[in-house]
């Protein structure tokens, strides 16, 4: 289980190759990639800056990964989150989960994203024609995380 916070971009193919290397028992890998969009809430976005709380970020993401290991039978999980200055179309986050079968991989991948969105201390600041502003947290993200407490 690996958690990485970095400014550099990542290569999906390379990361998946590393995840499955020498592990013939893996039957399924589910991966999610979050991207910078050029529009948010009807406003053009020309640039995004991602700030975080370094001492807490690693800890919070590792706690989320530990929780998915408890809930599902997984072979491995990988979380990469970028920080710093990003541009539209840039990759922001990668979550990849390896398991014997697809059910656990799909669900664990979605669980990690739902909790990353509500628990991990990252903040986005957008540059728009009207100036720079901090992105507001969305209630729908809290609801997405809350629905897991009813499951399993």
């Amino acid at each position: 289980m690996t958690v990485r916070i970095q400014e550099a971009d990542f290569d999906l193919s390379q990361e998946i190759a590393n995840l499955r290397q020498a592990r013939p028992q893996i039957g399924a890998i589910a991966a999610f990639i979050g991207l910078v969009r050029d529009v948010n809430a009807g406003e053009a976005v020309s640039e995004l800056t991602l700030e975080h709380y370094p001492a807490m970020t690693q800890k919070a993401l590792e706690a989320i990964v530990a929780e998915v290991k408890q809930r599902w039978q997984l072979d491995d999980a990988l979380v990469i989150h970028r920080i710093g200055r990003l541009l539209p179309t840039d990759q922001i986050v990668l979550v990849a989960v390896a398991s014997s079968h697809r059910g656990a991989a799909f669900q664990a991948c979605e669980f990690i994203m739902d909790f990353l969105k509500t628990q991990a201390p990252f903040w986005k600041k957008e540059q728009t024609p009207a100036g720079a502003h901090w992105v507001e947290a969305r209630d729908s993200d809290a609801l997405s995380a809350a629905r897991w407490s009813d499951k399993k």
Binding site: G34, L50, H52, A55, H81, L116, K117, P121, F122, W123
Partner: peptide
């Protein structure tokens, strides 16, 4: 203790 105050998070 290290106490941190911050807005609701918006990563991902």
């Amino acid at each position: 203790d290290e106490v941190a105050l911050f807005p609701p998070v918006t990563g991902g």
